[in-house]
Amino acid sequence: MKLNSKYFDSIRVAPKRAAEAASEEKHPQCQWKGCGRPAPYRAPKGRGHDGEYYCFCVDHVREYNAAYNYFDGMSDAEVVDFQKDAMTGHRPTWKVGANSWAHGTNARQSGASGNAAAGFRPHDPHGLFAERARQARDAPVAERRVLKPIERKSLEALHLPETASKAEIKARFKELVKRHHPDSNGGDTRSADTLREIIQAYNYLKKAGLV
């Protein structure tokens, strides 16, 4: 913009005194003794006064911060403990492999005694945990057994899963004997071979105690 432009004369700059007056109205006075300048900066009052602040001007807030000591009045041992707890956000910690129940923290927080904590039960409004526990108790031993290769092969010969019960093995044996008996297949030799394999598998399962 040219200095002799008609627009240049229309620009008005607020005087310095007006700006200072506006600053004084916007900010409180500095709380440093003997200073009455505007105080737009806050400084914490210190330990034990969380959330409380002083209001200072820029010069005095710098001076205050340079001499500020949060640990003023604490012993060396207290300072070390504070710094150690600060690493975990001042939250309780436990050794690896332990939890709050092992240390009784949750029992204390809930107001329960040691005996009550030992008998703690989770909130289960729909009975989901109780149903799973009942299924685990009622699960037949056959479902958890470990089979030998020949036992597994014998069950496969009878077209049965590894979890088959004694009643299921007997019923399937009777069914297969009736189906593959030579009299039911017109003397077919292939049926006789299959029948022999079924009988051998059944006898082995019976000898192994699975029937």
Rank of each mutant, 00 (worst) to 15 (best):
A136Q: 07
P140L: 03
P149C: 10
R144P: 04
A116D: 13
R132C: 13
L128N: 14
E151P: 06
R134G: 05
I150S: 15
D124R: 00
A117T: 05
A118H: 15
A116Q: 14
H123I: 15
P125L: 01
L155Q: 09
A116P: 09
E143A: 13
Q109A: 10
S113L: 09
A117H: 02
E151Y: 07
H123F: 15
R137V: 04
D124I: 03
R134A: 01
S154G: 05
K153G: 06
E156S: 03
G111M: 09
A142T: 08
E143C: 10
A118G: 12
A130I: 08
G111P: 03
A118W: 14
S113N: 02
G111L: 04
L128S: 11
A112S: 10
S154Y: 06
F129L: 12
P140C: 05
E156T: 05
L155K: 02
R132D: 10
G111N: 06
R121K: 10
S154T: 08
G114S: 15
P125C: 09
P125R: 03
L128F: 13
P149D: 12
P140M: 02
G111I: 06
E151A: 08
S154W: 01
V141Y: 04
P125F: 00
L158D: 04
A136S: 11
S110T: 13
V141A: 10
A133V: 05
I150V: 11
R132L: 15
A133Q: 04
R132W: 12
S113C: 10
V146C: 07
G119V: 04
Q109E: 12
A133F: 06
D124M: 08
A133G: 00
P125S: 03
G114H: 14
L128H: 10
S113Y: 07
L158M: 08
H126A: 14
G119P: 08
R152P: 01
P149E: 14
A136L: 12
E143T: 12
A116F: 12
D138H: 10
A133S: 07
R134W: 01
P149V: 10
F120K: 05
A130L: 12
L155N: 03
A117I: 00
H126E: 12
R145D: 04
I150R: 15
P122V: 13
V146Y: 02
P125I: 06
A157W: 09
R144Q: 11
A116T: 13
R121P: 07
N115A: 14
